[in-house]
Computed example of a mutant assay.
Amino acid sequence: MRGSGEPPAAQPLPVTFPVPDPPRPKARRPTGAAEAPAGERQLVFFGAETGEPAVADLAGLLVGPGEVHRMGGTARLSLVVDAGWRVHVLVAELAQRGVRASWAPTEDQRYAVRTAYTRTLVPLAAAWLRGTTQHPPAGFPLDGRRLRLWLAAAGVADPPDFLLRLGGTDPVGWTVIGGALVAAGLGGELIEPGAGGPAYRIIGRRGTQRLAELVGERPSAAPPTAWPTRD
């Protein structure tokens, strides 16, 4: 069984979950607009809901298990995830950025998600690849939209903490990502491969709440226990 990013009626996704969320509406508050009334949720500076989805956001997948490959004047993004709900979320997020994705089950009961080769992803490949080696570019920033994609692909709740699993085998790259987490207000603790990583542990209730502020509302496909909350 394989999938092509078509609507669920034409191409069912791997498990029974709600259909992918529709694109999120633009959430910027106009300059000079009044503050939200008491009790209403405030938008967070650099949060996932404060800007329009962009192809550059897909760098959040490369922080985790995502890989980008070039072929001629095109590039493709691929990753393997461990749960069907992640497929739903990622296919929807990619579609919001004009990138079609397909999926297929793997022999170890996970799911491979990948895009077609497209010129749309060439800038992402150019920023992250040196030859065939994948590495975060210098000064790499993490905002809410990139964190949302990283979390959707590889975030794991470990109450009261939250784990953001890393991809690759590049300790120097992991250090760059750790600096980006600090800049985003998420000082994570690096877990080495031999200790159950590689991953960054976002520690405690305060850290998890900050993560929740940045990544935005839980997608309907994600189980409640799989997404950080502001409570």
Rank of each mutant, 00 (worst) to 15 (best):
R2Q: 11
G3P: 09
G3M: 07
S4M: 10
S4L: 11
E6L: 15
E6Y: 11
E6C: 07
P8C: 11
P14A: 05
F17E: 13
V19L: 13
P20R: 09
R28G: 11
P30S: 10
P30R: 12
P30M: 06
G32C: 03
A33V: 10
A34W: 04
E35L: 13
A36P: 12
P37A: 08
P37R: 07
A38R: 13
A38W: 08
E40V: 08
E40A: 10
E40P: 00
R41H: 04
Q42E: 15
F46D: 14
G47M: 05
T50E: 11
A56C: 02
D57T: 07
A59G: 15
G60E: 05
L62R: 03
V63S: 00
G64Q: 02
E67C: 06
V68N: 02
H69G: 00
R70K: 15
G72Y: 03
G72L: 09
T74Y: 10
L77W: 01
L77F: 03
L79W: 03
G84L: 09
W85K: 07
L90S: 07
V91I: 15
A92G: 15
E93A: 15
L94I: 09
L94F: 13
V99M: 10
R100A: 15
A101H: 06
S102H: 13
W103I: 04
P105H: 08
R119L: 02
V122F: 05
P123G: 09
L124V: 14
A125D: 09
A126F: 00
A126M: 05
L129R: 11
G131C: 07
H135P: 03
H135S: 12
H135I: 10
A138I: 04
D143S: 07
G144M: 04
R145P: 07
A152R: 04
A153Q: 14
A153D: 07
G155F: 03
V156S: 01
A157K: 01
F162G: 01
R165K: 09
R165C: 11
L166D: 05
T169E: 12
G173M: 01
W174Y: 06
V176K: 04
A180Y: 03
A180T: 02
V182D: 14
A183P: 01
A184M: 04
G185T: 08
I191C: 00
G194Y: 03
A195N: 09
A195Q: 14
A199T: 04
A199L: 05
R201D: 02
G207F: 03
Q209F: 00
R210C: 01
L211K: 02
E213A: 13
L214V: 06
L214H: 12
A226L: 09
W227C: 09
T229S: 14
T229V: 15
R230P: 05
